[in-house]
Every structure is written in C-alpha cells, then in structure tokens.
C-alpha cells in the first residue's frame, strides 16, 4: 500500500477569540487506502470534508486522530519539517487554476519551485530545460515559462499547476476539484491529461470532486463522504453499478441527464430537509435527518463501516433492506 489511513479525524478551531473556542470536526473516523498507480475518487457535497481529508493525507491539515502510513511508515504526528522532506513524493493540484499560481512569478518560476527546493544544485540551464520539458509534457509551449499566469486561460493555468505538481515525478498527487472551475469544453482536456500522466509516470491520485461523472472517469476506487464521515467506499464499478448506501443512491440519482425527454419525466428521491450544521452533527447516523429509511436505531447507534462485498464497505444499519438496482426506497 502506498497510503493507508485508519480512523482519521481533523478538527478545526472555530470562533472564540482569546479564550473560548469551539471545535468543528471536518473529518471523523475516515479510513482509506490507496495503492501505487491507483486513483481514489472522493465524492460528496460541499462541506463534507473532501478537501480537508485530501489535505490531511499530505500533511497540509493537522490530523487530530488516527493512523496514517505512507509506504508503510507512520506519518501522523510528523513535524512540518518532516512533511517537507516527503513533499518530493506528495503533490497537489488545486481547484482555482489562477489562484494557485503566484501572480508575481513567471510560469517558469512557479513550475520550477519544487526543483528549487529539492534540487538546489541544479544549474540554471538544466532547470530551464526541465521546466520546458514538463510544460511541453502538459501540452504547453516551452516558451510559456517566461510569461505570467494572468496571460493564460483557466484550462492553461490548470496545466501549469499540473506541471508544477509532476515536475519531481511524485508518487501521489492530490487533485482537489481540478476541473470544477473550468468550462465543460475544456474539462475533458484536463481529465485526459491527468490520465495520460498517471499511465506514463506511474502516479497515484486522490481525486476529489463533487462531479460524479468526472470521478468515474479516473477512479479505480471511490469514497463517498457526508458530513465528515465515510458513508460508502469500494471499487468504482461497485459504487456506480451497485450503490448500497441510501446517500450514494440519492447522490447518483440527482445527477441530471442531458436529455430533455428523460429529464422531464423523471421523479427522483432526494435527501429531505437541510444539511445539518457540521458544528453539531446528528448523533447516531449523521445522515438520519435526511434519510428516507431512518428509524429509531439510526439515532441510537452510529453505523460502522462494514464489508458488504470484498472491498465494498458501507456504513448503514439498513442497507440490506433496500433492494439493489432499485432507485426508489421501500416505504418508511
């Protein structure tokens, strides 16, 4: 295993000036694993903790609990300096293509930053060559190095961000909503590039997105999150083909189909009510306030992740009662 996390939790201190503070549990009890060259998709709605989880896995957000192993070595509790040494192998691509590039640096300087940190002895000329090669690898002219980020379109800026992430040939790249800010017509370009790079360089991805159709394209495994908890995880085809958790099913059912004939006559089952505040999540099953199947025990006991099929894990008391293949839940 490249990366393995058990019962990971991340807490943020919110509000409270000098004295009082409240804590928000952004990720709670998340377990996952990722093998070399694989892609773990993380899906869920805004605020469910996807980004926080992705950042925590590479040391950009502090873990409050849990065990994290990178190539077998424990890395939870590592100091900032310890993490810095690992950054050669762990990189990230951000959601905001322009915002993740320093406006006062040339594209070349931004892409070269990891090189400057990890291979400071490299000559200027050698560094320039490496930057040029990497830019060309992501589909930009080598001459782009001398220009500034604001001269490029969103899709091109995302390519620059990807070039910076792969210039050291890392082993894991966290992609946090890498195509969400892009026009539909160029989203595919970036997804295809990521796929090629994975195959060429043997990268592994943690691919975070709220767009289920995009996640499906790249992932080998998928994790579904809700309010900081993992609801379901498993091989891609199982999650998309035989979703078991009520939340996963409703999430998949909500995705619109670009066909007026179908879309207009469709009835959906959607989560009722509103997303509870992450500051005071429901006890028991966090999804129970919106779940059409919720019953008394859902409030009493928190469902643990249990294996429904090899590698396919789900946190729900009643998953067996909802026949697979059907998209309408049985009566309450």
């Amino acid at each position: 295993m490249l990366l393995e996390g058990r019962d990971l939790a991340v807490r943020y201190r919110v509000s409270g000036g000098l004295l009082r503070s409240r804590w928000l549990t952004a990720v709670d009890g998340a377990s996952l694993s990722l093998s070399s060259g694989g892609t773990l998709g993380v899906v869920g709605e805004s605020g469910c903790g996807k980004s926080t989880l992705g950042r925590a896995l590479i040391g950009l957000a502090p873990l409050a609990a849990g065990e994290l192993r990178w190539q077998g070595q424990r890395v939870d509790g590592l100091s900032a300096r310890g993490w810095r040494r690992l950054r050669r192998e762990l990189q990230i691509v951000f959601q905001d293509p322009l915002g993740s590039l320093d406006p006062r640096m040339t594209v070349g300087q931004s892409v070269a930053e990891p090189l400057a940190v990890f291979e400071p002895s490299l000559s200027r000329a050698a560094r320039r060559t490496r930057v040029g090669e990497t830019l060309e690898r992501v589909g930009l002219p080598a001459g782009a190095a001398d220009r500034y980020p604001h001269e490029f379109s969103g899709g091109q800026c995302q390519r620059i961000g990807i070039a910076r992430a792969v210039i050291l040939k890392p082993r894991l790249v966290v992609c946090d909503e890498p195509v969400s800010a892009l026009d539909v017509s160029v989203q595919g370009q970036v997804v295809n590039l990521l796929r090629e790079l994975r195959d060429d360089l043997g990268l592994a991805y943690l691919f975070i997105s709220h767009n289920l159709a995009v996640v499906r394209h790249l992932s080998t495994e998928v994790v579904v999150m809700y309010l900081g908890r993992v609801m379901e995880s498993g091989p891609r085809d199982a999650i998309y083909g035989r979703p078991l958790h009520p939340y996963t099913r409703m999430l998949l059912d909500a995705v619109p189909v670009a066909d007026p004939q179908i879309e207009r006559h469709r009835t959906r089952t959607l989560p009722s009510g509103e997303l509870p505040s992450p500051l005071s999540p429901p006890d028991g099953c966090v999804f129970r306030t919106r779940c059409p199947l919720a019953e008394a025990r859902c409030a009493e006991r928190r469902p643990l992740l249990q294996e429904a099929a090899p590698g396919h894990r789900i946190a729900c008391h009643r998953w067996r009662e909802w026949p697979t293949g059907l998209n309408t839940p049985p009566d309450r």
Partner: peptide, 25 residues
Amino acid sequence: AGLLAALPRLDDDLAAPMRTIPGVP
C-alpha cells in the same frame, strides 16, 4: 455538438478518453 459530447455522463465509455473541444475559449 462538441459541448454535448464533452459533457461528462454517468454512462460514458471509460475505455476511451473523455471527449473535449480542442483549443481554448
């Protein structure tokens, strides 16, 4: 036509790359 083809769908063929419109807006 390109826009409709580029729209990611849940039943996309995964063996092929995603369809896109080349170039920049």
